[in-house]
């Protein structure tokens, strides 16, 4: 049986990829070395790991407004996550995803998305439908 997680209608194209999950928050300014494509903030749960082409699954947005430009800038160089799945996005992440055409979804019906998806799970995200499909589920 295919497992489908329902969420709020999101932004961006339908994508498939590998999840990278942490019970931590997200800011492109505060947390990333965007030149190298890794989490650089020492205290971040994903410190040192590459986010490139990953479907990042995190708790919420943090920090400031810079992420709205940075997602676009990261996408333009091809050193970007494939999608962001959060319990709760803020206005900045939505604006950044809209400009960057990056997939973003939040507010999952079944609860804490960082507990629903595990690192290395393959998932398909359909923001238009508000659905995330677990492709490895059986």
């Amino acid at each position: 049986m295919v497992k489908v997680l329902r969420c709020h209608v999101g932004i961006g194209p339908r994508v498939e990829g590998e999840a990278m999950v942490a019970n931590d928050n997200f800011s492109a300014r505060y947390d990333l070395d965007r030149n190298r494509g890794v989490f650089s903030r020492p205290e971040h749960a994903l410190a040192g790991q590459s986010y490139v082409d990953k479907i990042l699954v995190l708790n919420t947005a943090k920090g400031g407004v810079a992420t709205a430009w940075m997602l676009y800038e990261m996408m333009s160089r091809g050193i970007a996550p494939k999608a962001l799945l959060l319990n709760s996005a803020n206005s900045i992440l939505a604006q950044g995803a809209a400009l960057a055409n990056m997939t973003l979804c939040d507010r999952f019906d079944a609860g804490d998305v960082t507990q629903l998806i595990a690192t290395a799970d393959r998932v398909r995200v359909d923001p238009e439908a508000g659905e995330v499909t677990m492709l490895d589920a059986n």
Partner: peptide
């Protein structure tokens, strides 16, 4: 508008 060139990069400025 917040828009520093480090955040925008070439892509943002070109927009």
């Amino acid at each position: 508008m917040m828009a520093d060139p480090e955040s925008m990069g070439e892509a943002g400025v070109a927009l």
